[in-house]
């Protein structure tokens, strides 16, 4: 089914004509009370009408939940903390059960730019990919925030491993700014990598013959607080790489029935 029937000339500035059906903007949130309000406001202002903002609260200890409830969002309030993997997966499960055509992952820390969602949608329409990743590292916008040297080095290493394991070059494999189509939603709705979902999911997509495309998008520097990863960067790296290798061991998913997990 072609869910992108309209040509680009018929789009309004927010890209409303791009998609047939509803889009789930999944916003995973854990203790982001400083940034979530502005992130959600930005998303609502950019909504061309067929988006649903789905906030998944990963049992935050602060006021994140209250802030999410203040606006017209779908709020999934998890009873236990599942981590980023389980949190995003909850959003994808909701998208799967509620017949969304597309899902977008949009982080609640203010790094992602709502105006760039249409970039992901355009790229998906053009490339016919199943997942489109918004990348900081493709073309160089002047002044594009690219994060610290150590992190860039780490990301390069992860990118190299991705190329080794899948044959496809993804320059920003840790980017959470992604669009998922129906096939990708179905793949991940019941099973999504728990610890390092961004790079590991790329490998799983490759294993299941789903197409991944990368497109250049603008991103902001981190708004609130330091990344919790800065401290033990080295061990994190080893864990990511090993996790990716383990993901590469998994065979292709074969669903006989939709309830088979």
């Amino acid at each position: 089914m072609d869910m992108f029937p309209r040509q680009s000339s018929q789009l309004n500035s927010k890209g409303k004509g791009l998609v047939d059906g509803r889009v789930a903007i999944i916003v995973p949130a854990y203790n982001e009370e400083h940034s979530i309000k502005s992130v959600l406001e930005e998303l609502h202002s950019q909504n061309p009408g067929n988006w649903d903002i789905i906030v998944v609260n990963d049992k935050s200890q602060d006021n994140t939940l209250q802030m999410a409830l203040e606006q017209p969002n779908v709020v999934i309030d998890l009873p236990i903390n599942l981590g980023i993997g389980g949190c995003v997966q909850s959003g994808l499960l909701y998208a799967y059960h509620n017949d969304y055509s597309l899902a977008i992952q949009f982080d609640s820390d203010g790094q992602h730019v709502a105006n760039e969602i249409k970039t992901l949608l355009w790229s998906m329409a053009e490339s016919k990919a199943d997942v489109v990743i918004g990348s900081r590292f493709i073309s160089s916008f002047t002044g594009q925030f690219k994060s610290s040297f150590m992190r860039r080095l780490g990301i390069k290493l992860i990118s190299l491993t991705t190329t080794l394991l899948t044959g496809k070059t993804i320059k920003d494999p840790t980017s959470g700014f992604r669009a998922f189509n129906g096939a990708a939603i179905k793949l991940f709705a019941h099973s999504y990598p728990v610890h390092f979902p961004e790079p590991e999911s790329i490998i799983l997509l490759h294993k299941n013959n789903l197409k991944v495309h990368e497109v250049s998008t603008l991103m902001n520097p981190r708004l609130g607080g330091r990344s919790s990863l800065e401290k033990k960067a080295f061990f994190y790296m080893i864990n990511v790489l090993l996790g990716m290798i383990v993901s590469a061991m998994r065979p292709q998913e074969k669903y006989k029935s939709l309830d088979e997990v």
């Binding site: 099973s191 990598p193 728990v194 610890h195 590991e200 864990n239 090993l242 996790g243 383990v246 993901s247 061991m249 998994r250 065979p251």
Partner: peptide
């Protein structure tokens, strides 16, 4: 251990320990 991982009987985090 690899077999268990492929059959999804072991989660990635615990499989790393035994590997």
């Amino acid at each position: 251990i690899t077999y268990l991982v492929r059959k999804k009987k072991l989660r990635e985090d615990y499989s790393l320990l035994w590997l």
